[in-house]
Amino acid sequence: MSEQEGIDIYRRRFLGNAAKASAGLALAPGIMLTELGHAKPADEAVTGQVRWGMLIDSNKCAEGCNDCVQACNDEHGLTGFDRPATDAQWIRKVKLKDRQTGHTQTLPLLCQHCEHPPCVDVCPTGASFKREDGIVLVDKHICIGCRYCMMACPYKARSFIHETLQDQMPYAPRGKGTVESCTFCVHRVDDDRTPACVEACTAENHNALVFGDMHDPSSQISQELERHSSQQIRADLQLNTGVRYRGI
């Protein structure tokens, strides 16, 4: 048998495993894979034909519910060091109270995955970057830890790792001396799954979070965005955020 054949067998076995894994997922309760149209072969680069986005309906976001935050922490192995000022929070719940009317509401805040991200503009090494499909990431291999992106981000979405870490999640590498933020669960998205926070919100039947391709007119997020008015946080900066809100 030639070397190539060996590799082919290897690849087939992996594909088989992947199929089994997705079958298992589809059977799991409370998980809806509504965006199956985007299956991307693993060896193909992401393209700008897709733009991942999230629609957050503040009216449906339950006060006191932290399931999205917990799901994110579990998914990425985010642990604290009892230092709340610097402990990582990729997604956080914020409570708003209108100064004039007293109306209160709550919503999750995370990296807004801007089309024109200020963090990418200011990064000296190109470690802050935006993928073709609109997901804003930190390439920790080339991040020098200067934290200028943290100063530039209008959403306070980024945090810095001060401590030596161990037992990171294999699909969420993170380490001391680098900046990090929400990745839209890029490892899940590349595997045709939805981010952990969305999954958790849906499982709880709150359905406040919708994730999908904003360039695909038939996707749930595109249709909802077209049907209802939505807002961007700090729309004045014209960043064209990938995360949109309803009810703020």
């Binding site: 000022a85 956080r92 719940k93 109270k97 100064r99 306070k156 946080i233």
Partner: peptide, 16 residues
Amino acid sequence: PMEMFPGKEVTSTFFD
């Protein structure tokens, strides 16, 4: 703190 929600008081577990 950065002004993200004009006219609103903001509170969170992340020092917003």
